[in-house]
Design a protein around this nucleic acid. Structure first.
Length: 898
RNA sequence: GGGCGAUUAGCUCAGCGGGAGAGCGCUCGCUUCACACGCGAGAGGUCGCUGGUUCAAUCCCAGCAUCGCCCACCA
């Protein structure tokens, strides 16, 4: 006997182990089946499960489970990303707690005990990973994710590292990777370059300082420039004005004397200077501003780098400022300028300041040598693949975002000054010549050819951007560059499921690399972009805001199926999800409801019957519920195939709760308790069969509950398909099971009962008090049509406490439904005035409807232009409304005469 | 500055060229032999505003307003 409520925690652990024991998740390399591939977006190895992951993986799991049930050979490739900066941070922090710091050629910080080198550090990272990395993959199991865990990969794995090497070397040889000295986004906290995408613009309240630079040789004349970063003035090498700016025409070609430094800097004419902005003159710091860099190149200006890698002032600035942190230097510069009487004014100024997305500190444009990918070239085929529909985005609007970025793509800075990651496979000779190779010996050979003798080589210390390896995930995980069976079978992937926040970081780059290295074959045919999960107020969940809902807590509290169903039900396309606990609670109740429906079947001795044939059903209610089920399946199937997961959830919820539980099981009660043995047996078999089919339809969304109930009420231990999941059988229903007659008849009964209930409830008919019912529109046809409902309705009398076929007592009220008249409660148990009011209200509503329809149907344009079926439908509705109105009217008349 | 999206019941959101829907909340009534994580019945909306297209607009188009996001820039 099933317990009274469902206990997810016990069931989930047990069922998950059973599935694993049955090897239900692995890719089967089964040539008789069509493959279906999903590559998991590899979570950071340092990560832990948040709601975004929960949504992302619930959707993937739904697709995988559904496709397995459709007979596909599914590979859901799991794994983690080595997450360069994030991981290095975690381990560095851990080391710091032990008083250990990285040896970066700086003196030991006070309080620390020792420094460690690169090798030892990397060892520590691996050790950390072995102990606590990849927690998130264990957490995914709690969610029910059916990944092929035997194939788990890590972006720093040997195999994946080989792929990275090969890609780097090949792109270098194709001149699609190159080394360049230009301004990069420099993160002074992590001492590394980062890509444009890792820069976050933040609105900040700052100031605009106006400095007066004296003009050389013109005593008392100044040119005013404004800046938000006064410390950079120490690196100024020009002042620019617009060529057409009359105010400064005579100054072009002359020099200003840079205060505090004393450097002569030219005043140049350049379109970049905007006469409308500030004074119209702009200071030029080519080494620390992207625009100024371009100006500097145009005018051959000196590029003076004034920062070290910590963004402290370096030796290029006057003695007084050396070693100062950039913000301290800012204060000092302003104070000194003011002391010189050269500070014109300070305006408050709100502007956006670039910050490192990981470090949170303002980044500095910084002149360094870095490695770049020629993204523009790689982007071309990636754009074309989407244009031609080889890869489609769902929802389609994201294609525009993709195009927008891809068509304006900038060189991708891929080198990072970190230790954790794939080290750049480049070696330098004594004179700085570069040798890019798969390993040191290959590089040495190249060097030998180059120099004519063996030389000592130094490896580039930088590592690659984490996304460089993530970009290869769709094929590196399958064994590339080896020609593995997995690669052959499971590339390209079918669908990539991800959030829009990594379209640029990841999707775009997988497209570029996939097309380039896999013979022009896209990495996936569909990109399904899902919503972001926000809190119930619509705010992004973040630890600092304290509004984070932890999926594991929710799973503990409500069960994985409830969490999954909630996310699915909310996963409408094109909108963010605002998640609240009350919503999950509602779907937890749905789980309980299903559980109790199964319990009810069990109590009524419904048993699994392999030979049951729904087409042979005699009882109309049984034919009806089968018909309803058969109409639900295509809705669910189509919804999943169209990535409209909320619609699938809704169709299932409606069928199971509103149709099966609310109506069918109620109809079944009198049959279960009646004397008709054949009807009873048929109903028992049908009730369970329909429940089972519903469990299958629901399984992709709610795997645990459905599996458990199947095992408790299905064929049982050792039976054929004792596991729902391994049976993997998506229900298919013969079109013949859709029974229009049963649908119409039971639809009528449902409406009839609803009317009776409405009257009883609104009229406050006490429980037990009888109300009378007659079928007064007793045409032979309608009698025949509904003849065999009589027995059914008679049995319902118990529940509804209505008396069938009583004469209408004088003074009773008559309500109407279709061909039937429903006779309302006895006068003594209801308030007649109230009933008159109720009827009047109904009639008012109908009248409004009739006026509208009448107007429409007397419009000749409408009759001429609207499709016939629409016209016919409107006519029918008008007739119906009129009929109902007249019945209500006669009911009201009777009431008046009471 | 460029782009995208949203605006529908108290809240959260579906829907979408011909009858305004769901969940939660609310009100009323139910210890009905699966389930109070339940059952039954209700109340509640000129579908942001203004125009246009159409026989017909919540839905399509244009403009406006408000909110949100992305990209770029900011001396």
């Amino acid at each position: 006997m099933l317990e009274k409520t469902y206990s997810p925690d016990e069931v989930e652990a047990r069922q998950y182990s059973r599935w694993e024991a049955a090897d239900a998740f692995s890719a089967k390399f089964d040539e008789s089946k069509e493959p279906f591939t999903i590559m998991i977006p590899p979570p950071n190895v340092t990560g832990s499960l948040h709601m975004g992951h929960a949504l992302n993986n619930t959707i993937q799991d739904i697709l995988c489970r559904y496709q397995r049930m459709q007979g596909r050979d599914v590979l859901w490739q799991p794994g983690t990303d080595h997450a360069g900066i994030a991981t290095q941070m975690v381990v560095e922090r851990q080391l710091a707690a032990e008083g250990i710091e990285l040896d970066r050629g700086m003196p030991l910080a006070p309080g620390n005990t020792r420094q460690i080198g690169r090798e030892e550090f990397i060892e520590r990272v691996w050790k950390w990973r072995a102990q606590s990395g990849g927690t998130i993959l264990k957490q995914l199991r709690r969610l029910g994710a059916s990944c092929d865990w035997q194939r788990e990969r890590f972006t720093m794995d040997e195999g994946l590292s080989q792929a990275v090497l090969k890609v780097f070397v090949q792109l270098y040889r194709e001149k699609l990777i190159y080394r360049d000295k230009r301004l990069v986004n420099w993160d002074p906290r992590f001492h590394t370059a980062i890509s444009d995408l890792e820069v976050e613009q933040k609105e900040t309240d700052g100031h605009l300082w106006h400095f007066k630079y004296p003009i050389e040789g013109e005593e008392g004349r100044f040119i005013t420039v404004a800046t938000t970063r006064p410390e950079t003035m120490l690196g100024d090498t020009a002042v620019a004005v617009h060529p057409d700016d009359e105010r400064y025409k005579d100054l072009v070609g002359k020099f200003a004397v840079l205060p505090l430094v004393g450097r002569r800097i030219p005043i140049v004419a350049d379109d970049y200077a905007d006469p409308e902005q500030g004074s119209g003159a702009v200071k030029i710091t080519p080494a620390h501003d992207f625009n100024d860099f371009e100006v500097g190149k145009r005018h051959g200006l000196e590029m003076i780098n004034v920062f070290d890698r910590d963004a402290h002032m370096n030796d290029a600035v006057p003695q007084d400022y050396r070693g100062l942190d950039r913000f301290a230097a800012r204060k000092q510069v302003v104070a000194d300028i003011e002391a010189l009487g050269l500070l014109e004014k300070i305006d408050p100024h709100r502007h956006t300041v670039p910050h490192g997305d990981r470090s949170g500190v303002p980044i500095e444009p910084y002149l360094t040598d870095q490695w770049y990918v020629d993204a523009a070239t790689l982007a071309r085929p990636a754009i074309a693949a989407v244009e031609s529909g080889k890869t489609v985005f769902v929802p389609k609007q994201w294609e525009k975002t993709y195009y927008e970025w891809m068509r304006n793509i900038q060189p991708w800075c891929i080198s990072r000054q970190l230790w954790w990651g794939h080290q750049v496979p480049a070696w330098y000779g004594p004179d700085g010549a570069v040798f890019v190779a798969h390993d040191e010996s290959e590089a040495a050979e190249q060097a030998k050819t180059h120099y004519g003798k063996a030389v000592e080589l130094t490896r580039d210390p930088d590592v690659l951007d984490t996304w460089f390896s993530s970009a290869l995930w769709p094929f590196s995980t399958l064994g590339w560059p080896e020609e593995t069976p997995a690669l052959k079978r499971y590339y390209p992937g079918d669908v990539l499921v991800t959030g829009f926040d990594i379209i640029f970081f990841w999707v775009a780059r997988m497209m570029m690399d996939g097309l380039h290295f896999m013979d022009g074959e896209v990495p996936f045919h569909t990109v399904y972009i899902h919503a972001l999960v926000r809190d119930e107020k619509g705010q992004k969940m973040s630890k600092s805001k304290g509004n984070v809902l932890d999926p594991l807590d929710l799973i503990d509290k409500f069960g994985a199926d409830a969490v999954r169903f909630t996310l699915t039900a909310l996963a409408a396309q094109g909108r963010d999800i605002k998640l609240s606990e009350s919503r999950i609670e509602g779907y937890r109740n749905f789980c309980t409801k299903i559980w109790n429906a199964a319990r009810f079947c069990e109590m009524n001795e419904c048993r699994y019957e392999p030979g049951y044939d729904p087409a042979a059903n005699q009882q109309r209610v049984n034919r009806w519920i089968v018909s309803q089920l058969a109409q639900t399946e295509p809705k669910v199937r189509k919804a999943i195939e169209d990535y409209r997961f909320n619609e699938a959830a809704q169709a299932l919820y409606q069928f199971i709760w509103n149709t099966y539980c609310d109506w069918y099981l109620e109809f079944a009660k009198p049959l279960f308790q009646g004397d008709d043995a054949a009807a009873k047996a048929e109903t028992r078999a049908t009730a369970l069969w329909v429940l089972h089919k519903a469990l299958f339809l629901l399984h992709p969304i709610m795997p645990f509950l459905t599996e458990e109930l199947w095992q408790q009420s299905g064929p049982g231990e050792g039976g054929v398909g004792e596991n729902l999941m391994t049976l993997s059988d998506w229900p298919a229903f013969d079109a013949g099971l859709i029974d229009a007659e049963a649908d119409a008849s039971l639809g009528w009964v449902v409406r009839l009962i609803s009317q009776i209930r409405a009257v009883r409830s609104e009229m406050n008919v006490p429980p037990g008090a009888k109300i009378a019912l007659i079928v007064n529109d007793a045409s032979a046809a309608s009698k025949a049509r509904f003849a065999d409902h009589e027995a059914l309705i008679r049995t319902l009398a118990r529940v509804e406490t209505l008396v069938f076929d009583q004469p209408v007592p004088k003074g009773s009220v008559q309500d109407v439904l279709d061909e039937c008249a429903l006779v309302l409660p006895l006068a003594e148990v209801i308030d007649l005035a109230q009933e008159r009011q109720r009827l009047q209200k109904e009639m008012d509503k109908l009248n409004g409807e009739i006026v509208k329809l009448d107007k429409k149907l007397s419009n000749e344009q409408f009759l001429a232009k609207a499709p016939d079926d629409v016209v016919a439908e409107q006519r029918e509705r008008l007739a119906d409304s009129r009929q109902t109105l007249s019945k209500l009217q006669s009911a009201l008349d009777r009431l008046a005469s009471a």
